[in-house]
Every structure is written in structure tokens, then in C-alpha cells.
Amino acid sequence: MTGETLIQVEHLYRDYGNLHALQDINLTLNRGEVLGFLGPNGAGKSTTMQIISGNLAPTSGHVSINGHDLIDQPLQAKAALGYLPEQPPLYKELTVYEYLAYCAQLNRIPRHKAVAAIDRACQRCGLVDVRKRLIGNLSKGYQQRVGIAQAIIHTPDIVILDEPTVGLDPIQIIEIRALIRELGTDHSVILSTHILPEVQSTCDRVVIINQGQIALEDSLAGLDARLHQGGYQVALANPPGTSDLETFTGISKAEPIDDTRFMLQCEDDFNPAAFTETAVQRGWQLTELVPLNRSLEQVFIDITCNDSPQAGTAA
């Protein structure tokens, strides 16, 4: 049943003394959705996740999980939740199997179903071969997987992952991302990260948070659209002046790069096909027309930098 709201966060504030870590955070998470939670270091990502997982009390505001208020009905709310903190909460002196068995008990999985649950979690996280080994002896990547296995062992409706790919090697990152994508099919996932391609490869919807405030909330498609508001790089063997170029519909600015190449900053109504035709008609001798996509990084920097004066006055 998609569309059902699983997490509802309303007007969340959190102060650390005089520091306003979170200001008026509103969030929703729907069933079957992977929500990317982006922000620079210290933006309040982890704080928000700690509050949603019940590890931190908000200064004010309201979190309801699966219809249960986190403060009034904590047990029901937490039963629907699997949480992987920034630092996986592992008992290093236990074996993977012992640890997951304990997690199964903590999450009130009945004894007769526990073995099946542990097996399933091990399989999904690729832990079958290491289940008898001590967690402390595993590599960082495997420890991270044990952390994820712990979060999904009771097949919760919601899985919260706080920077799950930090410190992993590229192959492990790809595997973990695939796992997150797979989790997204039958769980709802909140994923916090400051690695932008991770969002592009895994998420349906993106929330960007900066200085404790939500700076942008958009679907990945909407974010993609923002990425294409870049411009074009053209090479003309017989170029006109920059002012001639700027008269063309949709070109706001033309900057020469060298004798033959220009950087065009474009509006939405720029039509590359019409531009090519014009170039041919006027004999500009078009040799290149390369669309410049703004990277997600640029969008991110634009958003986080543009908002900072406003956030600064609020803080």
C-alpha cells in the first residue's frame, strides 16, 4: 500500500544550550519510499535521526511512527523501527550470530521464529560466511553489514540508516547501496549521507537540511530537473561576437573560453535544435554543442550557500 504515511515529524526543535541544532523540521515518510537525507557536516542529520529513533528527546515537536506517538506509545512506535546509528552499535566480544540472536530478543521476535529471522538477515547482508566469527575481528565493511542486519532483523516497516557507507571501500559501497535499494522494495528507508551520488543511486525523494533547517524537499525527478538547468558549451569555427549570441532566445549570457569556444548560460526556453539551425544559416560553423549538467554538488552548494544568510539571522 504505497502512499500511507509511516513517519510524521512535525515542528521539531532541538537545542543544545544556546545552539539551535534543529529548527522547525517537518518530515513525512511514505510506505515503500527511500528518503535521502542530505546535508553538510553538522547540519543536524544525525540529531534528527536520533530523535526519530527515540535516542534523543526533542526540545519541542512531535514524532509519530506508524500512527504511534514516540513519547506516548514508545514501545509500539519503536517496534516499527530499525535504526543503524552513525557508529554501529556492536558488541565486539560477541559472534555475529550471538549478537543477532540478542537483537532478535530485544526486538521481541518469538523464540521459534528467531533462527529464521537471523538466517534471513544474514543472507540479505551477506553475512552467512562470517556468522561464527567475533564481530571485533571483522573488517569495517562487515561490521557495517552487521549493523544493517541488526536494523532489519525484525523486518520493521521503517529502516533508518545514518551514513551507512562511511569508511567502506568502493566495492562494499556498491554492495551496500544495492542492499539499500533492495530494502526499499519492502521497507521504507531513511538514509542520511553527505555523499551525493549515493542519493542519486538509491533514493526516491530528497530532503536537504542545512544549519538545522530544511533547505529543500523534492523528488529525485525534481532534483534531476534542477540538474539540467545548466548551460551549453559550443565551439564555433567562425564565431560571431558574444553580443550576437546573447540576442538568441534563451541565452542569458555567453562567455568566451578561447577563440572558438563559448560557455552559454541558458534559460528554460533555450532550444538547442533552433540554435543549431541558426548557426548553420549564419555560417558560424558549429563543431560542438555540449550540454553542461550541473552536478548534484553544485545544486547542493547553491542551496546550502544561498540559505545560509537567512539561517544565520534565524540562529
Binding site: S53, N55, L75, K78, G82, P88, K92, L106, R108
Partner: peptide, 14 residues
């Protein structure tokens, strides 16, 4: 210190 308290606090345990 090890953050394992978070395992207990986010589990459905009072």
C-alpha cells in the same frame, strides 16, 4: 561509550 546504548534505546524495550 560504544554507542550500544542506542541498540537498547531504539529497540521496543522500556
Amino acid at each position: 561509550k560504544n554507542g550500544t546504548s542506542q541498540l537498547l534505546f531504539s529497540a521496543p524495550v522500556s
